[in-house]
C-alpha cells in the first residue's frame, strides 16, 4: 500500500498534535488532524485510517483526572468504532496524555480483552509537573512500536504531572511482565533501575510504556515526537567539541547517549516502526 493514513486525534486541550503529525510525516505517513467532535458527529470515519495517534496535552484541562474525559468519550461515544478499529488489526499509539486516555478507557493493557480499567496513571510522587529527559530501557515485549530502535536504551523527555503508573493488583503486574506487555522502563543510562529522578514519577516497577496483547496498541509517558531531530537533544551543543569539527559524526560519550547522529533523534524510530508495520500488514 501507499502512505499509511494516521489520524491525529484532537480534543480541547490537546497540544502536541502538530509535532506528532510532523514526526509521522517524516517517516512517510499521511496525517490528518481530526477533532473528537468530528468523529462523534460522524463527519470523519475512524475506519478510514490505519493508525490512531492520541497526542500529548491536557485534554479538558486534566479536570477530574488526566485523560479521563476523553477516555470516557472513546468509551461511551465511539465504543463500536474503536473496537472495530482494533479488531481489524490497526494500530494505536497514545503519548503522554494519550497514554492516560488509553489506560483510562480500558484499551491498555486490556489483559482480559473486556476493555475494563485495569491500571491508572496518577499524580507524580513529587506532586507536581516535571519536564526532564529520561533514559528508557526497551523490554522484551510484544510491542511492534519498539521493535527496531537505535539502541536498547534510548533518551526522551517526559513532561507531565500525572504519570505514576499503578496496576490494579500484583497479579496484573506479574501478567504485564510475563505476557511481554511492558515496552519501556525508566532507567539510568546503563539500564539500571535508579529511583527518582531517573524514574520521574514513581511508577511501579519503573514502567514508562505498555502495550496490549496484540502489541499494536501502545502507550508511553515520554515524548518520542520531541526527539526526532538532533537539535532537540539537551546536549547537542556538546557534540561539536568532542569530535573533529570537520567530521561531526557519532557521539559515543555516555553523556551524549541518544544523540547518535546529526540527523535523527531516538524518538523517530518509534513512529517509523508503526508506519512500517502499517504498510506491511494493512
Amino acid at each position: 500500500m501507499g502512505r499509511p493514513r494516521v489520524v491525529i486525534l484532537r480534543a480541547a486541550g490537546t497540544n502536541c498534535d502538530r509535532e506528532t503529525a510532523f514526526a509521522f510525516e517524516e517517516v512517510g505517513a499521511k496525517t490528518d488532524s481530526v477533532h473528537i467532535n468530528q468523529l462523534v458527529r460522524g463527519e470523519k470515519e475512524l475506519n478510514n485510517y490505519q493508525i490512531l495517534a492520541i497526542p500529548g496535552g491536557f485534554t479538558y484541562g486534566d479536570d477530574i483526572a488526566s485523560g479521563k474525559l476523553l477516555a470516557n468519550e472513546l468509551r461511551y461515544k465511539l465504543e463500536d468504532e474503536v473496537k472495530r478499529f482494533i479488531s481489524s488489526g490497526k494500530l494505536i499509539i497514545g503519548i503522554c496524555n494519550g497514554f492516560q486516555v488509553l489506560v483510562k478507557a480500558g484499551l491498555l493493557p486490556n489483559l482480559n480483552s473486556g476493555f475494563q480499567i485495569e491500571a491508572t496513571l496518577t499524580l507524580n510522587n513529587s506532586a507536581r509537573f516535571e519536564d526532564r529527559w529520561v533514559y528508557l530501557k526497551r523490554m522484551h515485549s510484544r510491542c511492534i512500536w519498539t521493535k527496531d530502535l537505535p539502541d536498547d536504551i534510548i533518551y526522551l523527555p517526559v513532561a507531565h504531572g500525572e504519570g505514576r503508573f499503578i496496576a490494579r493488583d500484583e497479579t496484573l503486574l506479574r501478567l504485564l511482565d510475563s505476557e511481554g506487555l511492558i515496552a519501556f522502563k525508566y532507567s539510568d543510562k546503563e539500564g539500571n533501575s535508579a529511583g527518582y529522578p531517573a524514574n520521574p514519577n514513581g511508577s511501579i516497577e519503573d514502567i514508562a510504556g505498555i502495550c496490549d496483547q496484540t502489541g499494536r496498541i501502545f502507550g508511553l509517558m515520554p515524548h518520542p515526537e520531541r526527539h526526532i531531530h538532533y537539535t532537540q537533544h539537551p546536549r547537542w551543543t556538546r557534540l561539536r567539541s568532542f569530535c573533529d569539527s570537520e567530521n561531526i559524526g557519532f557521539g559515543g560519550q555516555a553523556s551524549l547517549r541518544g544523540l547518535r547522529n546529526l540527523k535523527e533523534g531516538d524518538g523517530l524510530a518509534i513512529f517509523r516502526n508503526g508506519v512500517i508495520y502499517a504498510k506491511k500488514m494493512l
Partner: peptide, 13 residues
Amino acid sequence: IRQYDHEVQGASA
C-alpha cells in the same frame, strides 16, 4: 524551570 513544559511544540533548540 522543570515545572514548566519548556519543550512542547518540539521547537526547543
